[in-house]
Amino acid sequence: MSSRLQDICLFNSSENVSTCVASGHEQLPDAMYAVLAVYLFSVTIFGILVNGAIIYLYFSRKEIATTSNMYVVALCICGFLIAILGVPFAAASSIRHEWLFGDGLCKVHGFLLTGLGIVMIAILTGIAIDKYIFIVQYQSHHKVTRSVTLAIIIICFVYGVTWAILPLFGWNKYVLEPARLTCSVEWTGDIGNHSYAITILFTGLIIPVSIIAYLYTSILKRVHSQRVISQRIVSHSRKIKIIKREKRIAMTLFMMVASFVIAWLPYSVYGLICILGYSNDIPLIWHTIPSAFAKASILWNPMIYSSRSNAMKKALGETYPFLRWMIPRNKGQQKLPGQTTLIQMNTSNGSDAIFVQSLCDNRVISTSL
């Protein structure tokens, strides 16, 4: 809690209640609490439905239960848990204009949101690594087995839980945020709080974003170089199609990175401002919006992956009748001039791929996700 509010509202952990000790306690406008309640309950409902639908598909349809889709379903499990165990508490508190669930659940709430948030970021990095291996280092992709993928996902969960549990043992702590609707780590305070906050900024944002940016840049360079090779052996009309596919790949990768950055960057900037000692200068509403905005990340990632994968769209359309419009048309196989075949197919990692196969040397070049 910022120093501006510490002398106004105290959190009484012995009685597990939030008690205001001054009549002039700063609050958001009533309309803002109503908007937050509607928004957070909407995130809860759609988070359960969207993530739950993909989790169900993974365990009910064999074509979706691929090795790389293990990352996607792990991401959806995190989003599902946040939608059930995290967001509803903040939504209910918005109705009453204060945290309703006591000091103990405040710590649990902060632990879950922090831990699962870091796990999701780690899994997004794992997805980028998987895409990099599949497209850039495709000769080694066969080594990425289900066991290896499962081990990586487990490491991601251990990584997130480890960072989230440290405040429970004295390195920083979980406290109510200034608007008293949700709990998180203490961004202000002594050097111990600052050291933890700065560390998770690096391990939870700067380093993962740097890795993801590097890997996806390498992927785009690889795709571009393969497009140049392909243009030498195809007609003008085929070149146009290849360029369109490359743009689609670039857009998919941009959406992946942008959803990650857009969701978490405002909250990270907010945390940095607090660390630098300017929390008192932030209006109360801006203590609230970055945290609420980050919670929507549980919707964006599964929607992006499901909308950009033909295999996922086909499964969604066949499983849920009201989504039949998502079923893509089967483009099948297209012949190119000479000894070259252009094939569009759903690959073993659950993503759509375009292969340019040169029959003279039996090499297969991946040119799409």
Rank of each mutant, 00 (worst) to 15 (best):
Leu316Asp: 04
Gly79Phe: 07
Ser368Asn: 04
Ala258His: 06
Lys295Phe: 08
Ser366Ala: 05
Pro283Thr: 14
Ala65Gln: 04
Trp187Cys: 00
Ile95Arg: 05
Thr66Pro: 13
Phe59Met: 02
Gly204Ala: 10
Ile200Lys: 03
Gly79Ser: 13
Ala353Ser: 08
Ala258Gln: 04
Gly277Met: 11
Val161Ala: 12
Gly189Asp: 01
Met32Ser: 12
Asn280Glu: 11
Ile129Met: 10
Leu112Met: 13
Leu342Thr: 02
Ser309Glu: 04
Met251Trp: 14
Arg222Ala: 08
Ile242Met: 13
Ser210Asn: 04
Phe293Met: 02
Ile354Thr: 07
Ser184His: 02
Ile206Lys: 01
Ile243Gln: 14
Asn69Lys: 08
His142Asn: 08
Tyr71Thr: 04
Met256Pro: 00
Phe322Trp: 12
Ala294Cys: 06
Ile154Arg: 11
Gln344Phe: 10
Tyr39His: 03
Arg227Phe: 08
Thr182Trp: 01
Val17Cys: 06
Tyr58Gly: 11
Leu166Glu: 00
Ile233Val: 14
His194Phe: 02
His224Gly: 10
Thr203Lys: 01
Phe134Asp: 14
Thr367Gln: 05
Gly104Asn: 12
Trp325Asp: 11
Arg329Ile: 15
Phe169Val: 02
Ala65Glu: 06
Cys360Phe: 09
Pro290Gly: 09
Cys20Lys: 11
Ala164Tyr: 02
Ala296Val: 08
Phe89Leu: 09
Ile48Tyr: 08
Tyr58Val: 11
Gly350Met: 11
Asp352Met: 09
Leu85Trp: 03
Met32Phe: 08
Ile152Leu: 09
Ser230Trp: 06
Ser184Cys: 00
Ala258Arg: 05
Ser68His: 12
Val175Glu: 13
Ile212Thr: 02
Asn51Lys: 05
Asp7Lys: 12
Phe101Gln: 03
Ser368Thr: 00
Lys331Asp: 14
Ser268Ala: 11
Pro266Ala: 05
Lys247Thr: 09
Thr367Met: 07
Arg232Pro: 00
Trp187Gly: 00
Asn51His: 04
Lys295Cys: 07
Ile354Met: 02
Tyr33Ser: 09
Ser225Ala: 15
Thr340Asp: 07
Ser23Gly: 12
Tyr216Gln: 15
Leu205Gln: 03
Leu342Lys: 00
Thr66His: 10
Lys107Gly: 11
Asn330Gln: 11
Ser18Asp: 05
Gly24Leu: 07
Lys313Met: 15
Leu75Gly: 13
Cys76Ala: 15
Ile240Val: 13
Val38Phe: 03
Leu359Ala: 10
Glu246Asn: 08
Met255Asn: 13
Glu98Val: 05
Ile95Trp: 12
Lys143His: 08
Tyr56Lys: 14
Ser42Lys: 05
Ile152Gln: 09
Ser237Tyr: 02
Leu323Ser: 14
Ser297Glu: 03
